[in-house]
């Protein structure tokens, strides 16, 4: 069973979001990283890039798979986790901490599509 921290929001495509004031930090869930396996490469968005909900924001790549990371939020990229370019395994080791991907300055309202930890957990339970 994978951890699903209560304080975060989630998407059906396995991104997590931490919202602090008007900044959202985005990563992929522990469940997502376990599906992909050991990650070998992360392609991050450029800072200042504008993103709408559902846009391709990043790509995470394991030996035999690659997955798009979609933006869960409307806004502009203000920071990316550069440590990942040398150590993509941080996502495997600490998906909710050192393995974060990028930060967005939120524009407008939060989308209604975001899931609570509880909803995300039930979604995972159903998939199994």
């Amino acid at each position: 069973m994978h951890t699903v921290p209560q304080e975060l929001s989630y998407t059906t495509t396995h991104e997590w979001v931490r919202i602090e004031n008007d900044i959202a930090t985005v990563g992929i869930t522990e469940h997502a990283q376990s599906l992909l396996g050991d990650l070998v490469f992360v392609d991050l968005p450029t800072v200042k890039k504008g993103l709408a909900v559902g846009d391709d924001a990043a790509v995470v790549e394991s030996v035999k798979a690659a997955a798009d990371v979609y933006s869960p939020i409307n806004g502009e990229v203000i920071e990316v986790n550069t440590a990942l370019s040398d150590a993509p395994e941080l996502i495997n080791q600490d998906p909710y901490g050192a393995g974060w991907l990028f930060k967005i300055k939120i524009v407008g309202e939060l989308p209604l599509t975001l899931l609570s930890a509880q909803d995300y957990q039930s979604m995972l339970d159903e998939e199994l």
Binding site: V40, V63, A65, A66
Partner: peptide, 12 residues
């Protein structure tokens, strides 16, 4: 680096 290739990345 097979993840770049069509049999994994398909349309991308």
């Amino acid at each position: 680096l097979q993840a770049r290739e069509q049999h994994i990345r398909r349309a991308k």
